[in-house]
Design a protein around this nucleic acid. Structure first.
Length: 899
RNA sequence: GCACGAGUAGGAAAGCGGUCAAAUCCGCAGGGUUUAGGACCCUGUCUCUUAGUGAGUUCGCAGGUUCGAAUCCUGCCUCGUGCACCA
């Protein structure tokens, strides 16, 4: 009998759609939970990475929904961007048409997988109704001075025909096409993200549920460092060169100054001198180097040239040569470096060009000679030859030298960031038009709010050369909003990262005629955000910046958008990322048509932890398919029994009780694993439960049917279609998706005293045997346990979780634990070979830690204990892998565990 | 160089102080069922040993803490990832 997973999936997708069960409304009375995956670029087909991403998100959304939360789980499309435009150039299709076709394709695949999105809230950033609000935001930013235009050296990608933000340049290459990025001087639009640098940095510490490495990457990217701009007067000129340093303690050893070749100072210093030619040559040479060459590690590649000018070291008045060199970076600090023997790079450079060096720090403060040294001294130590700071520890002296420099006007303390302003202009068509008009009379003018959106024209031509917008007359030619005279429209469009920096806010009220409604206050922040690590800096920092900026516009109350972040691992095949060039791509569509959506989803979640990489394995999918079928037949074969309204009263025997205990524990574990987003472990628990139920003989019992019900419900987040189908099969009316998540009952995990007694009956035989064993053995240590699972780990768990409970057994556990923690308890443990932890049948009677009398036999000891506590004490042996041994495992009556 | 993370049985992957010879899945071996294959169901799968069982060695390597360590600490090795002539 084959289960038709495909039909089942279709059936339930239809029903969900019809009944609209996944549409949500904000409801202040209910606790909300906002699950969000990074929305996709609609390239048409879903790949495994998408499937993984959404399977994680959907399982969480479903889980939270079943737990009773009001769950917002939307999706949409990051629909503007280059691929559509490139397709337009190549295939002569309209990018808009292309994009929306792809969106439909993608959407149908998403629907095939049965994700529980609220499709009502879906939108694409290419919708004019969306990008209108991009323009609106831009206006607000402009008015606040957060958006501005300036001329500067920017990263240019020839392949994409546009500029790029710093964040989009990876190792000197374009983040999209990997083409080498070159520098160009252009007049471009920027967003002042640097104004939020400090806030972005400091608030990282509030993000308790973000992966450390993401926070670290952002921290490094912001690159805040405290330092001082030290002023070097240039001899015989008016010029003063500021050199940024964090190590002003080495100032007295500075013997030369290095400028970055791109520094504007270079021209000022050398123009008209005999060095001009030479410098030009060397700068050309440096410019020929790729960024990687220029920043390579080997010292040999350092090149530079003397400028003919000298600077004055403000610390000691020495005249020192000014050089230019490739290793100085124009964009960091001031582009001017004070160079000395305590820096590796400076040292190597000086050695190559025979620039004199001197040390001012040594381990013990004794004078050392840099001329003889083979390498830079970069460690900490004691200063010498440093004026009044000689003899001080260098780190202690550092702030004092900084103070002294400020006092003597030799420098100014400053904070430096690596973070640059975000360049958002793009010379491409398929993006949000920047709502700006240039008027010859009035200058730069914002397009008025009532004229928004500035729509992209429909009749642009895609030749592949230049920005198509430039050539659309109707678009470019416009009137100045102020003087109504003729004016020209801005043809740059916005970086698409602008679109994705606030889309999560729009989901809160996607149809609003404002940017978003007050509902955002209810839904935000996103409780769980899920996406790839590749956005650790780019998208995630921009989104944080937007949230803060929008908050400062008084539109929002929160200042961090994403409470918890999960960066999901890649899906690999044969150890490598799936890629067309390697030919190892597995198409999710194939898996879905072969085994159904449920199998694909469960497999992708079961292989490994969502954060780790996972290896795609075709065999593995088959196994999941089998697993799902096993659940199907388990239900199908027993549905009469499960359906039964009248429960046949069956006495709970030991096996049933054991099963009950196991079921409860599995519910508990599954819940905890889902809470921690460890879907792979949750699936393992469900497999365990399936096996247990399958093995169990007495399928008449309520415990069994409860177990099956719990299994079906807990299956919903992973294999929702099958879950629904089986839920229907056992005659439950409503959707399993809307049912309450099973709750575990601690009482059912631990057996009651009566249950224990009954259970113990089954063990009598064993007990007798074990008594014999005990007699023979020389006992070294033993413990007496009372309850089935009273082993240390359980004490520990109870101790952690249920300190307040009034359950006597737990109190007992605490007492024992505490006893072990006392000095006396430890003594017992150490000094005597054997010690006994005793409890008695009636749980409230006593808790003691009793020594064993080593002179006597074990049985004699036990007799004594019996008298002492006036109770029955049975000896049984605790089996090690007790659960394996089919049921009759736990010592139930007060028992002695032999170690 | 700096900073993170990881190393567990034939493979993937749980466990993160005592229910651990270590979940789960695969693989492998034996048996049942089946015309056969597949599917399904049992059983076994570190080593030695028993009818059940018991004993011994294991969780990258070496030490340490503890009555007790795969789990905590220290050092080392290996592998991944991010940043990087950042002054």
């Amino acid at each position: 009998m084959e289960t038709d997973h495909i039909k089942i999936a279709e059936k339930w997708q239809e029903k969900w759609k019809k009944e609209k069960i996944f549409e949500v409304k904000s409801d202040l009375k209910k606790k909300k939970y906002y699950v969000l995956e990074m929305f996709p670029y609609p390239s048409g087909k879903l790949h495994m990475g998408h499937v993984r991403n959404y399977s994680i998100g959907d399982s969480l959304a479903r889980f939270k929904r079943m737990q009773g939360f009001n769950v917002l789980y939307p999706t949409g499309y990051d629909a503007l961007g280059l691929p559509a435009e490139n397709a337009a150039i190549k295939g002569r299709v309209n990018p808009k048409k292309w994009t929306y076709e792809k969106i439909n394709e993608m959407k149908s695949q998403q629907e095939m997988l049965g994700f529980s999105y609220d499709w009502n809230r879906s939108f694409a950033t290419a919708d004019t109704d969306y990008y209108k609000w991009n323009q609106w935001l831009f206006r607000e930013f402009y008015k606040k001075g957060l958006a501005y235009k300036k001329k500067s050296n920017v990263n240019w990608c020839d392949d994409c025909g546009t500029v790029l933000a710093n964040e989009q340049v990876i190792n000197g290459n374009c983040w999209r096409c990997k083409n080498q990025v070159i520098e160009k001087e252009l007049d471009q639009w920027f967003l002042k993200i640097t104004e939020y640098a400090d806030e972005l940095l400091e608030d990282l510490s509030k993000l308790k549920y973000w992966p450390e490495r993401v926070k670290l990457m952002q921290k490094n990217w912001i690159g805040k460092s405290h330092g001082i701009n030290i002023l070097f007067k240039v001899k015989d000129t008016e010029f003063v060169l500021p050199a940024f340093t964090t190590r002003c303690d080495t100032l007295f050893s500075v013997t030369f100054v290095v400028m970055a070749p791109e520094s504007p100072w270079v021209e000022k210093l050398v123009k008209g001198t005999k060095y001009e030619e030479k410098i030009k040559k060397i700068i050309d040479e440096i410019k020929k180097q790729t960024i990687i060459e220029r920043t390579s590690e080997t010292g040999k590649d350092k090149i530079g040239c003397f400028t003919g000018k000298y600077a004055v070291n403000p610390a000691n008045g020495e005249e020192i040569p000014i050089w230019i060199a490739n290793f100085a970076v124009g964009s960091y600090g001031t582009g001017i470096v004070m160079a000395d023997a305590h820096d590796k790079r400076d040292f190597e450079f000086a050695n190559k060009y025979e620039i004199p060096l001197k040390f001012v720090i040594s381990k013990d403060g004794k004078k050392t000679d840099a001329g003889k040294a083979k390498q830079a001294y970069t460690e900490n130590g004691i200063l010498f030859n440093s004026g009044k700071f000689s003899g001080m520890q260098n780190l202690e002296a550092l702030p004092k030298i900084a103070d002294w420099l400020e006092e003597t006007k030799g420098g100014k303390k400053t904070v430096n960031y690596k973070l640059r302003d975000w360049l958002i202009s793009r010379q491409r068509f398929w993006g949000t038009p920047i709502p700006i008009v240039y008027c010859n009379k009035c200058g730069i003018q914002l397009v008025p709010e009532k004229e928004l959106p500035v729509k992209l024209p429909e009749n642009a031509e895609f030749t592949g050369k230049g920005n198509p917008l430039d050539k659309v007359k109707e678009f470019v030619e416009t009137n100045c909003p102020k003087c109504k005279g003729k004016a020209k429209r801005e043809t740059d469009t916005m970086d698409t990262f602008f679109d994705s920096s606030w889309y999560y806010l729009r989901y809160c009220s996607p149809k609003s005629d404002k940017i978003f409604d007050k509902e955002a206050d209810y839904w935000m922040p996103v409780d769980q955000y899920i996406g790839g690590i590749e956005h650790a800096i780019l998208h995630l920092m921009y989104a944080r910046f937007f949230t803060k900026a929008i908050k400062d516009l008084k539109l929002l109350k929160i200042n961090e958008p994403f409470k918890r972040l999960l960066t999901q691992g890649m899906v690999l095949k044969d150890g490598k990322a799936m890629s067309k060039s390697l030919g190892n791509v597995v198409d999710p569509g194939e898996i879905i048509t072969k085994f159904g959506a449920d199998t694909a989803r469960v497999f992708i979640l079961s292989v490994s932890n969502p954060e780790s990489e996972m290896e795609w394995d075709d065999k593995g999918t088959e196994n999941i398919y089998k697993f799902l079928n096993k659940i199907y037949s388990l239900t199908e074969d027993n549905k009469e029994k499960i359906n039964k309204k009248e429960e046949k009263k069956i006495q709970l025997n030991s096996k049933t009780k054991l099963l009950q205990s196991k079921i409860q524990r599995i519910i508990k574990n599954t819940t905890n694993f889902l809470e921690k987003l460890e879907m792979n472990k949750a699936v393992a628990e469900l497999m365990k439960l399936t096996n247990e139920l399958h093995k169990f003989n007495e399928k008449e019992s309520k415990v069994f049917s409860d177990g099956v019900k719990a299994l079906i419900l807990m299956l919903n987040p992973f294999a929702p279609h099958l879950s629904e189908e089986l839920w229907e099969k056992i005659n439950e009316k409503s959707f399993s998706s809307l049912e309450k998540w099973p709750e575990f009952d601690l009482k059912k995990i631990n057996l009651t005293a009566e249950q224990q007694e009954e259970f113990a009956e089954n063990l009598r035989e064993d007990i007798i045997q074990i008594k014999e064993l005990v007699k023979k053995d020389k006992i070294e240590r033993m413990k007496i346990f009372i309850a089935p699972e009273w082993k240390w780990s359980l004490y520990k768990k109870l101790f952690k979780e249920k300190e307040k409970t009034k359950n006597k057994r737990i109190e007992f556990g605490l007492a024992m634990k505490k006893a072990m923690e006392t000095e006396e308890g430890k003594k017992h443990a150490k000094e005597i070979k054997g010690f006994v932890q005793v409890s008695v049948k009636k749980l409230n009677e006593a808790q003691e830690l009793t020594e064993i009398n080593e002179e006597k036999t074990l049985n004699e000891n036990i007799e004594e204990l019996k008298k002492e506590f006036n109770t029955e004490i049975e000896l049984i042996k605790a089996e090690k892998s007790s659960e394996k041994k089919a049921g009759n495992a736990f010592p139930l009556k007060p028992a002695i565990l032999i170690e």
